[in-house]
């Protein structure tokens, strides 16, 4: 990632969200959306921008499941592990995706395209099993439907 690009992006975000301490999280969320994760350089520049320590920024980021401090795949697939989806055979969805992508839960494909993760309740309990691919939410899944959806992300 080019530092100049990052700084320009950061300037833009500060213009939008402001530079007060309470804007750190929205800025991190937007950077995460842009870069897929919050690496050392990103955290460092956010800390510098807000005039706080890197550790403070990292401490905040590491609290939230949806903020990655390690590089993940371009598409993060989160499968709902809550009981309602579990009752609707979430296990089969996971099995199908694991075998299609050739990775296990928690891993990232070699080409850095897909990561498989769990998430807690997505609010699709009446239409489970459900999953998210980045910010998109899918419900009423079957194993083959789940695979088709995932493969449509190129």
């Amino acid at each position: 990632m080019l530092r100049e690009t990052l700084l320009r992006k950061l300037d833009h975000l500060i213009e939008f969200h402001g530079k007060a301490r309470e804007s750190v999280l929205p800025v991190l969320q937007d950077l995460q959306a842009t870069y897929g994760y919050l690496g050392e350089e990103t955290i460092n520049e956010v800390a510098r921008t807000f005039g706080i320590s890197q550790t403070e920024v990292f401490s905040v980021a590491s609290f939230y499941h949806f903020l990655n401090t390690k590089e993940k795949g371009k598409y993060v697939i989160r499968i709902c592990r809550t009981i309602s989806c579990e009752l609707r055979d979430k296990a089969n969805i996971l099995r199908a995706l694991e075998s299609e992508l050739g990775i296990r839960m928690g891993e990232t494909t070699h080409d850095k395209k897909y990561s498989l993760d769990y998430a807690n309740c997505m609010g699709m309990c009446d239409r489970g099993p459900s999953m998210m691919v980045n910010d998109d939410l899918y419900a009423d899944l079957t194993p083959s439907k789940a695979v088709d959806i995932v493969l449509s992300y190129r």
Binding site: E40, S53, Q54, T55, V57, F58, S59, S62, F63, T69
Partner: peptide, 20 residues
């Protein structure tokens, strides 16, 4: 006013440490 260490991660993974 240094903030060299903080709580990292959460729940049973929580640990005191520094950035990354």
């Amino acid at each position: 006013g240094v903030y060299a260490v903080a709580n990292l991660f959460k729940g049973d993974s929580m640990i005191v440490g520094s950035a990354f």
